[in-house]
């Protein structure tokens, strides 16, 4: 039995959030998207009230993460996600404006699955999101171990 993947989008820039959402939809992905405009709200949702992350056991997430957030950094969120035994299996797609090699390296070291530089060029952006859509459709999120 597979549960549909819920997309968690952590992005403070409303415009970016809207563009990402539109392009996801345009590429034919109809999964539920839950947007968060800051890191604290997102972490509260994901980790639950007790902070253990056990609340979403058995639920499949795909996390779209922006690195520049007003209250915390995406890197910090990534670290916390990958340290949690319930959430560490959820794929994380880092979306950010820079292509700084140090930052990319850091994200992959922490366990990010895909790193996408937000392109200014709309065509390539749409293309990236579309490929991401394909990626969404084929991923099999294993149920979180109890």
């Amino acid at each position: 039995m597979t549960t549909p993947v819920t997309i968690i989008m952590i992005e403070d820039d409303e415009g970016h959030a809207r563009l990402i959402e539109r392009n996801i939809r345009r590429s034919g992905v109809n999964n539920e998207i839950i947007p968060f405009s800051n890191g604290t709200d997102a972490l509260n949702y994901l980790f639950g009230r007790d902070g253990s992350g056990a609340g979403h056991r058995g639920q499949a997430f795909l996390i779209l993460l922006d690195l520049n957030l007003p209250d915390t950094t995406g890197i910090e969120i990534l670290r916390q996600l990958k340290e949690n035994k319930y959430l560490k299996s959820a794929p994380v797609v880092v979306l950010t404006t820079t292509d700084d090699s140090q930052e990319i390296k850091r994200c992959y070291e922490l366990g990010c699955n895909v790193y996408i530089t937000k392109p200014v060029n709309y065509e390539s952006f749409a293309n990236a999101i579309r490929q991401l859509g394909l990626f969404f459709s084929v991923i099999q999120v294993p149920p979180a171990t109890i």
Partner: peptide, 17 residues
Amino acid sequence: SHDLRSPLVNIMGFTSE
């Protein structure tokens, strides 16, 4: 330069829209 890029992504994205 980093922060300038962020609004630029929006401008370009919505121009395409």
